[in-house]
Design a protein around this nucleic acid. Structure first.
Lengths: 229, 229
DNA sequence: ACTAAGTATGACATTTTTATGAAAGTGTAA
DNA sequence: TTACACTTTCATAAAAATGTCATACTTAGT
């Protein structure tokens, strides 16, 4: 379920390559080329992981890591640093600052993905698998269950992902296209209108206790999950 | 509103098919069959995107991509490359040179269009907008809500855009024509007087708490949004 | 007070957008 | 293979929004 990886590297080709590899593996990549754009990515929706080049001009790689570790909301986001071969000192320094792992350039896609998955597996129990609860509607990613005031609600996989996305991104309108990108994935090609159908099924599924009101239509814009009715 | 797509492919039938699909989807296509004609298209008005066949005779596809990425003005124009199935090496190479995505031949029109739209969406991200608040009237573009001292106000899409425009451009008179340009968009044919109707609807929508006084008529000139009553 | 020009407003035919039921397609486990 | 559970698309219904008009009001100038 971990999707967004922030890729920070000043060299465009390497960044592109990383993004390519990530997307091939079902991740969504966010790019940043320097300190400023990396910090700019420290907002909702937060990345689930950061791939950080240690060798940014001006040595700002370490600054970025520090920033992430200082911020309350981004503290637990794992960071994998990318280092040049032999820079042992950098590795130690990085791990001190809070990086969770490192990968030495040049690296193979396979190795990279293995590390990423390992790191995410290590931290996922806490950082993004917590149950979310809104208005008596509770979604637990671990047991993969949705309960409404105790009783379990039944829904399809897509509706579950849709609800999960909504509950982790409330009070915000999403266009059908954005929902497709975020819930279905970037390289899936389905009609915009298909979203309507799943919205309907999601509503029907959570309707029993009136929670369908949380999924709101915003005419001309898309849909919104909101506890403000 | 990206429209122009440069199509570079040496095979006329494929080019025509691409052009056909693009035009069916509301894009304007510019054709090029080889290196020279592709480079010739690197002028104003620049295309908004490039569909590039990697397998051009003489391997010039990559040259074209390089040219685009070197030129200051065309550097940021996204490139989608068309590759034959299985040419993994080409894909990586292409992404290194700066291509934004690739589509494997043969491809379905649907897939192609989805990729194009995704790339364009990625390149022109919607800027994060902050909520604006005037005299207890609050408009939040993110959740797409307008609230007046807490309670939500209901209005149509056009009224929302109109209010948004007003709130971001206060204390200034706009003629009906200017409002049409800014809120409806240029090259939209509507009567000037239609603005009156939407002004009325907007006023009615925000009237409950007296905020309708913020939308002021300036006789002979147009309308103004002002907190000075 | 009267007129001319500008503006406000209610009504309404049309067009757009959404909602929804159902068919068709996909994949999967028994 | 046959069920079965989803997913996606399509057709159509339903709802909401839009642009125009006709008519009522206002205002400024005479």
């Amino acid at each position: 379920m971990s999707r967004k990886v922030l890729v920070v590297d000043d060299e465009a080709p390497i960044r592109e390559m990383l993004v390519f590899v990530l997307e091939q593996n079902g991740f969504q990549a966010i790019e940043a080329e320097d300190y400023d754009s990396a910090i700019a990515a420290m907002v909702e929706p937060y990345p689930d992981m950061v791939l950080l080049d240690w060798m940014l001009p001006g040595g700002s790689g370490i600054q970025i890591a520090k920033k992430f570790k200082q911020n309350e909301h981004t503290r637990k986001i794992p960071i994998i640093m990318l280092t040049a071969r032999g820079e042992e000192e950098d590795k130690v320094r990085g791990l001190e600052v809070g990086a969770d792992d490192y990968v030495t350039k040049p690296f193979s896609p396979k190795e990279l993905m293995a590390r990423i998955k390992a790191v995410i597996r290590r931290v996922s129990p806490t950082s993004l698998e917590e149950a979310i609860k809104v208005h008596g509607l509770r979604l637990d990613p671990i047991s993969h269950r949705v309960t409404s005031d105790g009783s379990e609600l039944d829904m399809g996989p897509t509706e579950f992902r849709l609800l999960h996305f909504f509950m982790t991104h409330p009070e915000r309108v999403y266009s059908r296209e954005q929902l497709l990108d975020n819930v279905w994935g970037t390289n899936v090609y389905v009609e915009d209108r298909t979203v309507d159908v799943h919205i309907r099924r999601l509503r029907k599924a959570i309707a029993p206790l009136g929670h369908d009101r949380l999924v709101q239509t915003v005419r001309g814009a898309g849909y919104r999950f909101s506890s403000k009715l």
